[in-house]
């Protein structure tokens, strides 16, 4: 586990500052998994339901790719990347609890074939910038009352 400011943020992932989604690219296949980061989940609470896009559907960065209902709110899932969905975590449709218990593992949402990884990943947070961003986000979430 790689912890920053008390929250688990694995360093081999890229994070979307706006949606608190993560993206993890397989360099060999170029396919990229997408999920929700730990801080985003803290703001949502326990998930009750999730709706995900169909395999083969095209998603655009910043657009809704699904919906979820959690303890604290219902919200649209905003994609951090553009691409075509090649795999969907169907187990979550029946039991979304892995998203809360294992957000970077069995709680992944979809895998996509990105259409512009070089361009769009530049907008995501990764590498050395991660520490400062996570620390600032934790502070902001505390100030706004999302987390205790």
């Amino acid at each position: 586990m790689q912890t920053i400011a008390g929250f688990d943020f694995p360093r081999q992932r890229h994070y979307d500052a706006a949606s608190h989604f993560w993206a993890c690219r397989d360099d060999e296949s170029s396919r990229t998994s997408i999920g929700i980061d730990r801080l985003g989940l803290e703001a949502l609470g326990e998930l009750a339901y999730v709706a995900l896009p169909d395999v083969g559907s095209r998603i655009e960065r910043g657009d809704a790719m699904g919906t979820l209902e959690a303890a604290k709110m219902t919200t649209e899932l905003v994609s951090p990347l553009s691409g075509v969905v090649v795999e969907r975590n169907d187990l979550l449709l029946r039991d979304p609890s892995p998203v809360n218990s294992d957000p970077y593992g069995t709680g992944w949402l979809v895998t996509i074939e990105p259409t512009d990884w070089p361009g769009e990943s530049a907008h995501l947070i990764s590498g050395p910038a991660l520490d400062e961003w996570v620390a600032a986000e934790v502070e902001r979430y505390r100030a706004e009352g999302w987390i205790d």
């Binding site: 703001a43 604290k72 709110m73 979430y141 100030a143 706004e144 009352g145 999302w146």
Partner: peptide, 13 residues
């Protein structure tokens, strides 16, 4: 626009 309205949880309160 959190400067004007605060976060969602504060807003809920």
């Amino acid at each position: 626009d959190r400067h004007a309205y605060g976060g969602a949880r504060q807003l809920m309160e």
